[in-house]
Amino acid sequence: MKKNNLPENKNLDLIRALIIKHKKNDHIFAGIGFFVIASLAVALLVLFLDLLINGYPKINLEFFSNFPSRKPEMAGILSAWMGSALVLFVTFFVAVPIGVAAGIYLEEYAKKGWFADLIEINVSNLAGVPSIIYGLLALGLFVYEFGMGQSILTAGLTLSLLMLPIVIVSTREAIRGIPVHIREAAFAVGATKWQVTWHHVIQYAMGGVLTGIIIGMARAIGETAPVITIGALTFIAFLPPSPVTEVAPFINFDWLDAGFTVLPIQMFNWISRPEHAFHINAAATGAVIIMLTLLMNGVAIKLRYNIRKKIKW
C-alpha cells in the first residue's frame, strides 16, 4: 500500500490528463455548434431588421386597410392579406383533416409491407418536391381539368397539396412518440382499435400534430411560385364576396370562386416596379410576412409546450 492508498498501476496524473484531453472534444464541438447557430440567427436577424427599417414608415393601420394603388403612398395590402387569409383558410380545412387522417391510417391501420413502404417513400419525397411543380400540377388539374379557374379555391387546394406531406409526416412522428406501454394499457382494458386511436393516440399526438400544422401553414403563407403559376392576380382593388352575409343562411361560398392575390405576390409585384417608393412598400410587406410566420411558429411552440406539460411518459 502506498501512502495515498492507490494501487500501483493507477497514475492519477495520467488519468487527469486523459480526462482533460477528452473533454477538449466537448468544447470544440460546442464551439462549432454555437458559431453555426449564431451566424444563422444573425443572418436572419439582419434580413428581418433590414426589411423592418426600410418598410417602417409604411407599417401603419392604413397600410393594412388600403387597396394597392398606382400611387405608392396610397398603396396598401388589404386585398393581399385578405387573399392570404382566405387561401390559408381553405388550405387549413383541406390539408388538416386529410393529412391527420392519412397519418393515423398509415401508422395505426395500414398493413406493413411493400405497399406501405411505397406510400411512405412517396410521402417523404412529396415533402421535397419544388413548389412550382405543385403549381404546374394545380394549373393542369384544378384550373383546366376541373374548371375551378384562377380562384381562391384553386390556390387553397394547391397549397394544401404542399402542406399535406408536412402534416402527414408530423402526425406519424407524433404517433410514434407515444410509448407502447400506454397503448397496451388501453388495449388491456378491452378498448377497440378505434377507441385507442380516438381516446388516446390522437389526444397524445396533438402537440406534435399542431406543430406540424402550423409549420405547414407558415410555409404556405410564404409560397409564391405555385400561386403565380395557377394565375393569381397581381393587381387587385376589390375584395372577394364576404363569407358571412346579413341574410340567412348567413354564410356563402362565392368567395371560393373569386380572383385574389396573396402577400408574397404583392411584395414581388412591388419589387419589380422601378419607383423607390414601391420598394418601401415591398419591404413593409416582407416584414409583415416574416412577422406572421414568426407569430405562427410562436403559437406552435406555445401550444406544444402547453400540451406536453400535461404528458409525462
Binding site: H181, I182, E184, V189, G190, A191, Q195, H200, K310
Partner: peptide
Amino acid sequence: FQKPNPFPKSIYENVAYGLRV
C-alpha cells in the same frame, strides 16, 4: 404491467376508462 402506465388523464378517468369503453 411492469411499469406503472397510467394514461395522461385524471385519476378518475384512468379508473373509469375500462367502463367507458
